[in-house]
């Protein structure tokens, strides 16, 4: 409330786009090309978590033209009237987005949001160890069932995130990730508590490194991170690779979209940036950099084949149907979940 963001550069206001983005979520070349094309400057601020971004916006941060939140955070921003509607007439490249990623439950009719990229929450694993121990890699049972966990005790990390871990447990139990029935949450809690003694840690920050080094063999995490872990392991010449796949029970699909914050002072430039990012070659650059999922049809031709052919990044239609996007919780449910989570952490 008392926190105000002051634009940090003394450049002419009309020439600067203030972008509030995830860490490492746009390639430097893309930025440079946009800056050359529009004769403007792009200033980025970063967040590493939707909640962190929402907390900053709730505290009154202003001046951002564009933010790139995940669906449930988009929903929260729309409902708290933080966003400016987009003008589709200024986005001729919007037609590039695959229909499966438009008209989402969090923003019906895409009045406020334009899809940017997506991530899947899945299981990454040390290919050599999983093969050696005869473990399955395509099911959540790998992180929840003691019969598998016994073989990898202390070598598993799960995300330190209430929603993500509960979503994985709910999916394994055959429920929707957006079910807020307390009885089902308690079922999920019991599943988690049964598996917990076998896990090394709740980890959202260092599992990429731990996988790459070989300390951790199985990690619940994001597809981008697994892509990076695999690249790092290859570069370091490790005797194993990092594999990742979408569990057959389904998983969380996190669609990040570009939205216009109502306090942004350059909506025209922001629209220009959105349309620029909708062009296939620009959109593809991000996927080639971090292995993110891409909702853009026109980007497919520019994506490196080894990524484009990866079914954990570009799932087939049947798998896509088993993926779910997370909805925002109301404050009552948030508190119920909070208590369950504290219990999970403590026991």
């Amino acid at each position: 409330m008392w926190l105000v963001l002051f634009p940090t550069l003394p450049v002419l206001a009309a020439d600067t786009l203030y972008l509030y983005n995830w860490n490492n979520y746009i390639s430097d070349e893309t930025i440079a090309r946009f800056e050359a094309q529009c004769a403007c400057k792009v200033v980025q601020d970063y967040y590493s978590d939707n909640e962190e971004m929402l907390a900053k916006i709730a505290a009154g941060a202003s001046g951002y033209d564009l933010i790139v939140p995940t669906g449930n955070a988009v929903e929260s921003l729309i409902r708290s009237r933080q966003l400016r509607p987009i003008d589709k007439a200024r986005l001729p490249h919007l037609k590039n987005i695959k229909p499966a990623f438009l008209n989402t439950p969090f923003d019906p009719g895409n009045r406020y949001s334009v899809p940017y990229a997506y991530t899947l929450t899945l299981i990454g694993y040390n290919t050599a160890k999983v093969k050696e121990l005869g473990l399955p890699s395509d099911t959540w049972a790998l992180i929840f069932e003691p019969r598998y966990l016994r073989k990898i005790k202390g070598r598993v990390t799960v995300l330190d995130s209430q929603r993500e871990l509960m979503a994985a447990a709910m999916k394994y139990l055959g429920h929707s990730i957006n079910d807020t029935d307390e009885a089902k949450w308690k079922q999920a809690r019991d599943l988690i508590l049964r598996a917990k003694p076998y896990w090394a840690a709740f980890n959202a920050s260092s599992y990429i490194k731990e996988l790459t080094v070989g300390n951790i063999w199985v990690a619940h995490g994001y597809s981008n991170d697994m892509f990076q872990a695999d690249q790092d392991a290859r570069r370091a010449g490790r005797p194993f690779a990092i594999g990742y796949g979408i569990p057959e029970e389904g998983a969380v699909l996190a669609l990040d979209s570009m939205v216009l914050h109502k306090t942004g002072r350059h909506p025209a430039l922001a629209h220009r940036f959105m349309d620029f990012m909708l062009a296939g070659e620009n959109s593809a650059e991000l996927t080639n950099l971090i292995g993110s999922g891409n909702p853009n049809r026109a980007a497919m031709d520019h994506i490196r084949p080894e990524i484009a052919d990866n079914r954990a990044v570009f799932p087939d239609a049947a798998t896509l149907r088993r993926l779910e996007m997370m909805r925002d919780l109301d404050r009552r449910s948030r508190r119920v979940l909070n208590r369950i989570w504290t219990e999970i952490k403590l026991r």
Binding site: D49, A55, A58, A201, R335, L337, W341, T342, K345, L346
Partner: peptide
């Protein structure tokens, strides 16, 4: 997996669960 302390709990309220 069992090392949550009060600082983590408070941080979660502000940065994790709103």
């Amino acid at each position: 997996t069992r090392d949550m302390l009060i600082g983590n709990l408070i941080k979660d309220q502000f940065l994790g669960v709103r």
